[in-house]
Amino acid sequence: MDGTAGAIFDDVEIGQDIPTLVKGPMTTAHIMRWSAAMENWHRIHYDWKYATEHDKLPDVMVNGSWKQHVMIQLLSDWVGDTGWAWKVGFQFRGMNVPGDTLTAWGRVTGKQERGAWGVVDLDIGLRDQKGNEGTPGTARVVLPRRGGPPVPYPFDPAVLG
């Protein structure tokens, strides 16, 4: 098929790290680009005086709404156009500011065959250049088995049985 071939269920091992995704160093321009594209007016993303004086933050903030798509991209890069990122959840616990370089990571915690496909569970996160974990979460993806049928699209969990 065209598109990007992603991971195959048979090759996945519990404990395995999936390829990381690095973003940054982040700058105010990156934050502005995202906020403008989303028409997000939350002042902590562009008004330094408000962020630091009113909200007592260390700087303007990298958008949580942006980080979530980095987490989704981490998974979609791994499963490619042959698997499916089915479930993803995370908490925004850490703050990130201009200057931070963020690394999204995932580690396989479980795998099981379901129907003609395989389901893989992961712990995911987003850490800054100092190693601080800011966005802990979990994910569940569906992968094809070697020689098996592709994961149906649009994805319907009912196919897993």
Binding site: H42, D55, G64, S65, Q68, I72, W84, A85, W86, K87, V88, G89, F90, Q91, F92, T135, G137, Y153, P154, F155, D156, P157
Partner: peptide, 14 residues
Amino acid sequence: KRLMNGGYEYELFR
């Protein structure tokens, strides 16, 4: 006064 985004749980189909 302070609003923060706590996080998301997504289920994705299409």
